[in-house]
Every structure is written in C-alpha cells, then in structure tokens.
C-alpha cells in the first residue's frame, strides 16, 4: 500500500542527546531487572526490552504524553518509563513492593500508569489488543482527537482476537495504531515457523487499514516514521497498522537461559551490529553533537542513576497482608478466608 502519510519532522541535536540518554537508561534499567531476577528479588515472568529501545523512544515521543492512550503486552517497563512513570515505582513493582505502580499486585508484566495514559501491562498474548481498540473507541465516542498506540509482539499477531479487533477498528473508524514489535521470535519460535507469511505488515490490508513496515533499529528514522503516522491518524481518525522490524538481544524472558535453542551466537553477533544505542552514539560523534568525553560522562551518570533506582526500589517494603483484598472491587470484597 502506498505510503500516504507524509514525513515532515526535523530533530534537533538536543533531541538526539535526549533520546540517547533515554534509550541508555532503559537498557541499564532492564539490565538491573535481569540482575534482580537472578538474585531472586524478582520472580514470576519478566521480559526485558534490550535491543528494542528505539521503538519506545521513537513512538512515545511522537504522541501527546498523558493525553494519548498507550497499551502493550508484558514487555512493558520501557513504555512506562518513557511515558514518564517514576522508574523507582516501575522497579518496585518488578520486585513486588508496596511502592510499585500497582502496589506489588501486578509485577513486571502488569505496569500501569493511567495518569500518563499508560493502560498496561497485559499478560495474555494478543489479549489486550481489543482493550486498546476500546480505548480508541472511547476517544472516538467522545469526539476527542486522541490517538491510541496499541503495541504487540510478532507472536501476538497470530491470535484470532487481533483479527477480530482489526475488523472492528476499521469498521468503526477507530484512531488506533496497531504496532507490531517484530523482534523475530514468538518466545522461542522463529518468525518463519510461526507466521505463514513473514511480512506481517500485510495483515492490516484485508481490513482496509493503511499498513506498512518500518525499521525500528534506527531511532531517528523510527521517530520520524512514528510522528508521520501518529499525525496522520490524529488527522484522519482511522486505524493504522505498522510492522516495526527489531530484535531483542536478551532472552524472551528472564527464565529463558538458553537462547541457542532457537538462534545461533553468530546470528546474535550480527544483530548486535544493528544495536540502536550504538548506532545513535556513532551518529552523535559523527555529527559533532557530543564528544567522546561528554558521552562517557553521560553514560556514567545514567549508570549511577539506574543503580540508584534499584537501591531506592529495594527500600520499599513488601505489601502488607491486610492489603490482599484491596481493589478487587471498588466497593466490596468477595467471601474472605481459605
């Protein structure tokens, strides 16, 4: 399908510096999450965004933060952080503390921050896609000009409910951008083994939805593409379907300790050459925006900041047993006791 939205954004040196810092912080944060899991501080299922940082930075800096709606699956720390959630609260949630975004009731997969427009944080692959369309439905219903970013992985794009939602989003003109974060693996199953047609971007076409594939490893281009699409959807009040090509360097989740079951070390090494953070770093030097010394100073600062976030999160107490029945309902509890 022809590329109908037009690109007009120009980025300043300050923007690029900010994106570098932001992506680097997300990566350091995620590394702390992995460490926390290994140390037993975090449990359950935990999925990091390492390698995919340019998507959160590119898309979420293209919307009106706190006004537009954002929803994603369980690989959700980066979205919250970039939208402006206190990283200490995110980390506290990851390690199940009272100070977490959901008071320790959600965990890594269920980070929420509705004040910043972030509606989670969902654990059933593809299950949140209709919820995202529902957020867009509400803004359409109220004649607002919000857009909704509805993120999913490549694995989710096979779920039936995703196709049901695409149909209704188009039928009812919902201002919803369906974004496939295609990191090439549905857990441990490679794209070519789970998708009959590897060009996932085509999946919007049968529903008469503008659809395209873009690169998610170059944050500058990602940011421009995202702005172009967000502006088009806000203006036209129609859905959009985007496949963003990316790669995760970490395992599917923290429990995925054997990546060689589904990919080779050579492949990983090759993918590392596309690292969006290293790429932007090279651009900053090449374009004389930052010196090597300035970069190193910033990197040290970010590292310390991430360490402090971890330390502060650990200071938060565990939830009190008396809280277990809180917020199942707004006004009651179910039958209590074992």
């Amino acid at each position: 399908m022809a590329n109908i939205a037009e690109e007009s954004l120009t980025l300043s040196p300050a923007d690029l510096k900010a994106y570098y810092r932001e992506m680097l912080f997300v990566r350091r944060f995620e590394e702390h999450c992995n460490t926390a899991y290994r140390k037993g501080l975090a449990g359950g299922y935990m999925h990091t965004y390492i390698g995919m940082e340019a998507l959160a930075t590119g898309w979420l800096n293209s919307i009106r933060k706190g006004y537009d709606y954002v929803i994603t699956a369980y690989r959700d720390h980066a979205h919250a952080i970039v939208l402006g959630t206190d990283p200490v609260a995110v980390m506290a949630e990851v390690i199940g503390r009272k100070g977490g975004t959901a008071g320790g009731k959600g965990g890594s997969m269920h980070i929420y921050d509705p004040k910043n427009g972030f509606f989670g944080g969902w654990g059933i692959v593809g299950g949140h896609i209709p919820l995202g369309a529902g957020l867009a439905f509400a803004s359409r219903y109220r004649n607002e000009d919000r857009v909704t970013l509805n993120f999913m992985g490549d694995g989710a794009s096979n779920q039936g409910v995703v196709f049901e939602t695409l149909n209704m989003a188009s039928l009812w003109d919902l201002p919803c951008i369906f974004i496939i974060e295609n990191n090439e693996f549905a857990m441990g199953t490679r794209l070519e083994y789970h998708a009959a047609d590897k060009e996932l971007w085509k999946r919007g076409l049968p529903f008469n939805i503008q659809s395209e594939r873009v690169d998610g490893m170059d944050v500058v281009q990602m940011r421009k593409d995202a702005q172009r699409i967000v502006d088009w959807v806000r203006e036209n009040q129609r859905p959009y379907f985007v496949e963003v090509m990316t790669y995760r360097y970490s395992g599917h989740g923290a429990a995925d300790q054997d990546r060689q079951l589904y990919r080779t070390k050579e492949e990983e090494a090759q993918a590392l050459q596309r690292d969006p953070i290293a790429r932007l770093r090279a651009q900053l030097i090449e374009q004389n925006i930052m010196s090597e010394e300035a970069l190193e100073a910033m990197e040290l600062e970010v590292e310390e900041e991430a360490a402090q976030v971890m330390a502060k999160a650990e200071e938060s107490p565990f939830p009190d047993p008396s809280e277990v029945y809180d917020n199942i309902y707004t006004d009651m509890t179910p039958e209590q006791g074992h």
Binding site: F119, P130, G134, F137, S139, M168
Partner: peptide
C-alpha cells in the same frame, strides 16, 4: 457488532477503562 464475541467484549472493556 460483527459476530466476534471476544473482540467486542474486549473493545467494550477498553472503552470502560477509558470512562465509558
């Protein structure tokens, strides 16, 4: 709605989360 119960139940849920 189309005959897609999971889809519209989810869309309605999302709409409720946003205040409808």
């Amino acid at each position: 709605t189309p005959i897609t119960e999971a889809g519209f139940a989810g869309i309605a849920t999302g709409a409720a989360m946003a205040g409808l």
